[in-house]
Amino acid sequence: MPRSSQPARRDRPEPRAATVARRASVLKAALDCFTRHGIDGTTIGDIQKAARCSVGSLYHHFGSKEGIAEELFIEGISRFNRGMLRRLRQSRGAEESVKAVVRFYCDWSMRNRALASYLHSRDIDFSEQARARLKTVYRSYITEVFTWFGPFVAGGTMRALPPEAYVPLISGPIQEYVRRWLSGHYEPSPARMKELFADAAWQAVRSRGPAGPAVH
């Protein structure tokens, strides 16, 4: 039977898929604009032109330029967290897991330099609603991280410390280094420094004797 001359019909994207794609396009355009001009120097029209969508669509999905800035930050943090948790779940043992945190922080920041710079910025005045969402994102992430590292502490391969101490000790130093590198204050790339910081992180939290109760 001869083939029909009519082109094959393609199903239209589902409304939700189209919405997700549109939001992602706007956030990417916003990141480009914020990187070039800063948040204050960017107008809603700049984002609209870069995203090739209507101003009405921007307001419908985000409410305002500030809403776009907040959503970009929250989505960026969420992307980072998901990637970090995937990396942890691929690790074996306490030492590899601790070092994986530092290595992932470096690798992700270099692959996503513009977004990493944005996440390190201090230019966003968050609404109360955005602050509440960020707290939820952070609590969920920290719960997952502590669930992963908890058995290593209980088993005696990591020091029993106040819960608040682990994140600053493991990722605090490399976070500060990456922040300064992104701002141009440090020249050596995180790729050249990550093993040094990974070793330091492990030395900071590895067990030095029999396991004991956590300090509160």
Score class of each variant (00 low, 15 high):
60 H>P: 01
61 H>F: 02
61 H>A: 00
61 H>W: 00
63 G>H: 00
66 E>P: 00
66 E>N: 01
68 I>M: 03
68 I>Y: 00
69 A>G: 04
70 E>S: 01
70 E>G: 05
70 E>C: 04
71 E>M: 02
71 E>C: 01
74 I>E: 08
74 I>M: 07
75 E>W: 02
75 E>Y: 01
75 E>R: 01
76 G>R: 02
77 I>D: 07
77 I>L: 06
77 I>R: 08
78 S>D: 11
79 R>L: 10
81 N>Y: 08
81 N>G: 05
82 R>Y: 06
82 R>T: 07
84 M>F: 11
86 R>W: 06
87 R>K: 14
87 R>Q: 09
88 L>V: 06
89 R>V: 09
90 Q>T: 12
91 S>G: 15
91 S>Y: 05
91 S>H: 04
92 R>W: 15
92 R>I: 15
93 G>Q: 11
94 A>C: 14
95 E>G: 15
96 E>R: 13
97 S>I: 07
97 S>P: 11
99 K>V: 11
99 K>H: 09
100 A>D: 09
101 V>Y: 03
102 V>L: 03
103 R>E: 14
103 R>T: 11
104 F>P: 05
104 F>L: 03
105 Y>L: 07
105 Y>W: 06
106 C>E: 02
107 D>G: 05
109 S>T: 06
109 S>M: 02
111 R>I: 00
112 N>V: 02
113 R>L: 03
114 A>R: 03
115 L>E: 03
116 A>C: 02
117 S>R: 01
119 L>P: 02
120 H>S: 01
121 S>A: 01
123 D>A: 09
123 D>V: 02
124 I>P: 10
124 I>E: 05
126 F>N: 00
126 F>Y: 05
126 F>S: 00
127 S>D: 04
128 E>M: 01
129 Q>A: 13
133 R>F: 05
134 L>H: 04
134 L>F: 12
135 K>S: 10
135 K>L: 13
137 V>I: 13
138 Y>K: 10
140 S>W: 06
140 S>I: 04
140 S>D: 12
141 Y>F: 15
142 I>T: 10
143 T>A: 14
144 E>W: 05
144 E>Y: 13
145 V>N: 04
146 F>L: 14
146 F>V: 08
147 T>K: 12
148 W>T: 09
148 W>F: 15
149 F>M: 08
150 G>R: 09
151 P>R: 06
151 P>H: 06
153 V>N: 05
153 V>G: 07
154 A>V: 14
155 G>Q: 04
155 G>H: 10
156 G>T: 08
157 T>V: 12
158 M>W: 11
158 M>F: 11
158 M>S: 07
159 R>C: 13
162 P>L: 06
162 P>M: 03
163 P>H: 06
163 P>M: 10
163 P>D: 09
164 E>V: 15
165 A>Q: 12
166 Y>P: 14
166 Y>N: 07
167 V>P: 08
167 V>L: 12
168 P>K: 08
169 L>R: 08
169 L>Q: 10
170 I>H: 03
172 G>Q: 09
173 P>N: 12
173 P>F: 12
175 Q>K: 14
175 Q>W: 13
176 E>P: 08
178 V>I: 15
178 V>D: 06
178 V>Q: 12
180 R>F: 14
180 R>V: 09
180 R>E: 15
181 W>R: 00
183 S>K: 09
183 S>T: 08
183 S>R: 10
188 P>H: 03
